[in-house]
Design a protein around this nucleic acid. Sequence first.
DNA 1: TGAAATGTTGGGGCG
DNA 2: ACGCCCCAACATTTC
Length: 475
Amino acid sequence: MDHDSPSLLWFRQDLRLSDNPALSAAAKHGRPIVAIFILDDENAARWAIGGASRWWLHCSLVRLDASLRGLGIPLVLRRGPALTVLPALAAEVSAGAVFWNRCYEPFQVARDTAIKSALSGAGVRVESLNGSLLVEPWVPKTQAGQPFRVFTPFWKAMRGLMAPQLPLAVPPPTIPPAKAPPGDALEDWGLQPRKPDWAGGLRAAWSPGEAGAMAQLEHFLEQGIGRYRSDRDRPGEDSVSRLSPYLHWGEISVRQVWRAAETYAGPAAEPFLRQLAWREFSYHLLWQFPDLPERPFNAQFSRFPWREDSAALNLWQRGLTGYPLVDAGMRELWTTGWMHNRVRMVTASFLVKHLLLDWRHGEAWFWDTLVDADLANNAASWQWVAGSGADAAPYFRIFNPVLQGEKFDPDGRYVHRWVPELAKLPDEFLHKPWLAPANILKTADVELGGTYPKPIVDHAVARDRALAAFATVRT
DNA sequence: TGAAATGTTGGGGCG
DNA sequence: ACGCCCCAACATTTC
C-alpha cells in the first residue's frame, strides 16, 4: 500500500465538522483525507430523497464544501449506487482506509454492510461510527431482553444510559492536504427546483448548513427552551427548536443539542430532551421493524377499509379542507417545508380519521414536502397517528380541528398567518367560519365556497364514520 | 401528545 | 322551611 494513500471520509447524514466521529477518526489516522458525498437514488429506490430535502441538501453541500476546503479536505461529488461508486473511488485514489458515520434506513444498512465487506475484502480498512444517535437502536432492551415497543419505558431506560455531560468527538487536528479526484458539479445534480422554482418560501425560512444549525440552536436556547414546557403546543409561538432538518442531515449532532439544552436550561430542558428521545424511539422501531415505512406495525391494520379519494387527498395537500387549522398547517408545510408538531398531529389525524385515507398517502406527501423528512420519524409518526403503530394513539382519539384550534391558537396568530383570507374574521369564528352569521362573514370579506372553502366533511359525521371503520380492526 | 357522552354534585330559584 | 327542579361545573366513562 502506498504510504501516502489517503483516507476516504464518506459524508451522508452528518454534514458537519463539529462532533463528527468519522472526521475525528479519519483525522487521527493521520493521512490526507478525501471527502465524498454520493447521491444514491438507485439504492434508495422508493425512498429516494424528496423534493424539499433535495433543495436543503444542495444548500448544505455548498456549505460543507466551503468548510472542508478550510481544512484542506476536498469534497468529491459522485452519483450512482454507492455499492459500486465508493469502492471504485477507493481503488481510484488507492485509499487505505474509509470512515463513515452510520445510517439506519434499512436500505442503507444492507448496502453499507455489503460495501464494508467489499472494501475489507480489497484490503481497505473500514471504520463506521455513531454520529447520529444518542443510543444505538439495538442497545436499549426491556427486562426480558426484548426491544421496546412502548415509549415511556424506552425513555426511562434511555435516560438512565445518558451520561450527565455527553462527550463530544475531538476536533480534528491539522490534516495534510489531499489531491482532489474528479467529481460532478453540484449544479448538474438538479437538486434545486427550476421551472417552477417553488423554493422561495424555503429560502426565506431557513439557512441550511452547520452555521445555520448553530444559530438556530442558540436562538432556541435564548428564546424557546425556557417556555418550552408551556408553549410548545402553540404553533403561533416561537418556542420550538426547529432543529429537525439540521438533525436529519446531521448539520448538528443530537449529542450537541442534548448537551446544550441540559447545560443551558437544567431541569427545564426535560420535556425537550423527551422529544429528542422520540426520535431515538423511531430509530429503535425502524431497526427492529424495517417494514415500518411500508406496512402497519400492528398487522390487524392490514385489512383496514381505507377509502380511495384522490380529490379529497388533493384538497388536503393544498390546504383547502375548510378547517382553518388544518389548512394553515398544510400551507405552512408547502410554503416553508416544515410544520409545527401539534399541527402535524392534527393534519395527520384529519387525513386518516376524517378522510379515511391510508396513512401512506400522508407519509409520501410529507416525505416529499418536508425539509426534515426522515424515514424513521416519518413512518413511526404516521403509524402513531393512524393507530397502527407501536405505542400508538388509540383509534378512538380523533382530534377535533375546531377545538384544537381554539385551544392552541386562541388568538389566531397561526391561522391569520397562513390563511390570510380569514384575517378579518373575529376570533370567535376563526376556527369555524361556517358557523359565522352571514353579516359577519360579509364584513370580514369571507365568502364560504368562494374566498374560502366550506368544510369538505362534517366533523360529527366523519367522526362517527371513523369510529365505525376503526371498530372493524379492533383487537 | 382527545373528545363526547354520561354521571354526579351542589347552589339557587321557586312553588 | 322544605323539596323539587334546573343547570353549570366537575368527574367518570366510553368511544
